[in-house]
Amino acid sequence: MRARRSTKIIGSVAALAMAAALTACSGDSDTIRIGVKYDQPGLGLDEGGTPVGFDVDVATYIAEHLGYTEDQIEWSEAASANRESFLQQGTVDMILATYSITDERREVVDFAGPYYVAQQDILTAADDTDIESPEDLDGKVLCSASGSRSANNIVDDMGIGAELREAGNYSECLELLSNGTVAAVTTDNTILAGFAAQNPGNYRMTNNPFGEEQYGVGLPKGSTERCEEINEAITQMWDDGSAAQFLEDAFGETDFAYEESTPELAPCA
């Protein structure tokens, strides 16, 4: 009798565990976890626990297209250095964090998009008129955030002899620029425009853009179907005028000349 009773108890416990697991899985499907930046004005900035900015607006639009309401989104802070690991470890379902599409990154994650094509530029102190182009950075200290290839584009790809200084994020780069530790900060013009607008009179963009940065929606490897759904959302977002409105909301009060043309979407792998 005890053996039969024990078996029933074990069976009941197993059934309860299975039910709990099914409930947990069901709960997971009721939310979507999205990684965005929390420290980039105009793109992804934490304001009282809720991120705001262009990337956040695009992410919300895509989530709604996928069937999620705004209150079903779980936001996570995605720094440049942890974007791949977040997707590989299942910390988030997708990332929109000025995440440029590159062949190197495609080896470990999938991308939908691009949803926007930015260009690279340079930010200096407001009173520094010596730096107008990448060539002027020769022999100077240049800052870029960990996990970003912006500074490498200048030093490695363009062969300019700048001294690289890596910071944890672009907020730290701005601190180094303010105290004179670095001569300039380089990254996408969208990012630099947001910081310049947040600190009027302190910094100057050269407004001499170069290169191209295709912002993609980062996805776990093997997300072909989800990629296609997101590309549909991106096309619709540009067609119905939402993308242009998001750009105006983010950068309309700055002198940043943002692109308003629909980007050419890459095929989903």
Rank of each mutant, 00 (worst) to 15 (best):
V109I: 15
L43M: 12
E84R: 01
I10D: 08
G27M: 11
N199H: 15
K8A: 15
G241R: 11
L265K: 08
A196M: 10
D138W: 06
M94N: 04
T50E: 14
L177A: 05
K37I: 00
S26G: 10
A250Q: 06
A79N: 12
I32L: 09
G90R: 02
M205S: 04
V58Y: 08
N179F: 13
N202A: 13
I131L: 03
A19I: 12
D130N: 11
E253I: 02
G139T: 09
C173Y: 04
N153E: 12
Q214R: 15
T60D: 02
N189W: 10
K37V: 01
A162W: 10
I234K: 03
R204W: 05
A14L: 14
T187E: 14
H65F: 05
P41Y: 01
T60W: 07
G180H: 10
R83K: 13
Q120K: 06
G44A: 01
D255C: 02
C25M: 13
R83D: 03
L192V: 09
S133E: 14
Q245V: 08
L43Q: 12
L176H: 12
T23K: 03
A59P: 12
N153G: 14
Q245I: 06
V58Q: 03
L177I: 05
T7D: 12
I10N: 08
R165K: 11
E260M: 10
A145Q: 12
P200D: 04
L123K: 07
T31N: 12
D127F: 06
Y215T: 00
L174P: 11
N208P: 04
A97T: 04
G168I: 07
E248K: 09
T23L: 13
A97L: 02
C227R: 00
V52I: 14
E104I: 02
N202Q: 15
D121I: 00
T186R: 09
I9W: 11
A145S: 14
A14Y: 05
L96Q: 00
G168Q: 15
